[in-house]
Design a protein around this nucleic acid. Sequence first.
DNA 1: GCGATATGCAACCTGTTGGTTGCGCATCAC
DNA 2: GTGATGCGCAACCAACAGGTTGCATATCGC
Lengths: 132, 132
Amino acid sequence: MSAESPLDTVADVLSALADPTRRRILDALAARGEATATTLAAQLPVSRQAIVKHLAVLDRAGLVAGHREGREARYTVLPARLGATARRMGRIAADWDGRLSAIKHLSESAPGTGPGTASGVEEPGTADGPGA
Amino acid sequence: MSAESPLDTVADVLSALADPTRRRILDALAARGEATATTLAAQLPVSRQAIVKHLAVLDRAGLVAGHREGREARYTVLPARLGATARRMGRIAADWDGRLSAIKHLSESAPGTGPGTASGVEEPGTADGPGA
DNA sequence: GCGATATGCAACCTGTTGGTTGCGCATCAC
DNA sequence: GTGATGCGCAACCAACAGGTTGCATATCGC
């Protein structure tokens, strides 16, 4: 169910988080700890079906998990992926920072090619598990 | 040009980061330190105009900045916003985590309404400037 | 068993967005 | 001055994503 590479993961998390409605769903979910699509729909300005779709996206991104309880499908928020993504982004920001000053220095001595390939947002740098 | 509230900012950053091409642009930009749309277009599988549009989005999100140099328009990566967003996300993840265990405890003593409103992704919790 | 409630699936509509091409304007090199 | 290079704007396209409605199905309460 969840055997993605960390690269795909970061992309999924980011695009999942990019939608406002999805963020509100996460918000509501975090506030109540657990909720069904129907419950959430009652509290947000969209239909239940829309919520269902969003929950599917969030699930694929590993940000929520759901389990069936009788005739209800309850969802919970999963902090791990979000934390991991946050750390990765922080690392990239730090990397940019370092690279910027490095280049600023190099520009006076070695003009040609700057530093090598970036540890970037797209290609993996350091791998870290989703562990909190 | 850049007088947004930190809330809008986080949304802008996330949706800017959600696009694969945009991430590759940031990557290339971070690697070379500085580049023009034309340069980037030569190295990515999209037209120059597409790059220009993406750079505009990234600029609005505060992730890059550009300055004109003669007939060239050079762009650089800006680490600050990315770092700030990363920290905010980390904080939210921690918040979810705390809330989850709190609820798990409460479920045995006080059933009614759980904790109050979340510090969530959508509504501001703690405000921190874009400073590194 | 029977009605009520909740989920799941599918079709459908519409706005946004990533992308392209074409063209006019400014700037640099000679 | 003139050609080449680079940028900016506008129009246009196609695909996807968010959202809705309708319906069939499973579970709960009595």
